[in-house]
Amino acid sequence: MAETNLLSPKPDFVLYGGDIAQLGLKEEIDHGLELLSPLRYKTYHALGEHDYYLDLGEYWERRIGPQYYSFDHKGVHFVVLNSILTHDDWINKWPTPMDRMMTMAGLDNPEGSPFMVGDKQREWLRRDLAKVAKTTPLVVLSHSPLQKIFRNWNFWTEDAEQVQALLAPFERVSVLYGHVHQIQYNQIGNISFNSAMATAWPWPYPETYAQAPSHLPVLTVPMNRADPFQERDATGWQFVDIHSGRVALNYSLNDNGNRVVAYNAATGQPEDQGFQPADARIPPQTHY
């Protein structure tokens, strides 16, 4: 918070990618908001699974606002989705709300359930976007990636293709997401995808789990952290420049060189400004 308050130029607002709580408890949400309170910028929140699966977002809504919404800023249409919903029968099968919460809170818990945006919200999205000119830059914030990377850890949204279909008609679409605690980026049609870092702890790239296939976008140059042991690794914030109508993410990385991932109009995809070419990457690891 203190660091982002020093940013120059000042950001217009802050996007928070979700999971302000760990187990959805009121005191956790209160505490998280207290930690965020020094921020001198208006803050837009997305809902994460850790905020949701105890009381299905009730306290979060009361303290923060609607679970999905849209707004316009300086000619850009922003949409914030709740992408961590799941099947009703899974939600209703648990003896207590905390059992449900604990299960979804374990990233690798095999009893978990895939995230989704769901029919109702997609219909809302369809109607919301119907009012927006196709030439208007569109920025979508969600907690989980609106693409399918690794189902075991819900680096995944079950109805991603259907959401993407609603975004596809727009000329410039950027999806920002949290959840993964690592740099990921991708391009699917007109849609650019960029992840944000965590404020909590690092997560490994899925391919470091040997027992299940994963689909890290080939475009992504992974962070130089095959064996991280920095407690602050993959944590931090990004300064997002949307001046061009496409996003450019300036990643501030702990004990690792800062990185910039920006949309390259010539190639039509987000690219790392330092490490994108194969011969510019850093093999092997330069830290431990």
Binding site: Q22, L107, D108, W153, W201, P204, T208, Y209, D227, Y288
Partner: peptide, 24 residues
């Protein structure tokens, strides 16, 4: 309240096959 799995889902990034090794 912290558990190993929070940073190491499925024990990923523990790399047991790389030990012994230098640890900073």
């Amino acid at each position: 309240g912290v558990a190993c799995a929070q940073c190491h889902p499925n024990a990923a990034n523990t790399h047991p096959e790389t030990y012994p090794k230098f640890q900073k």
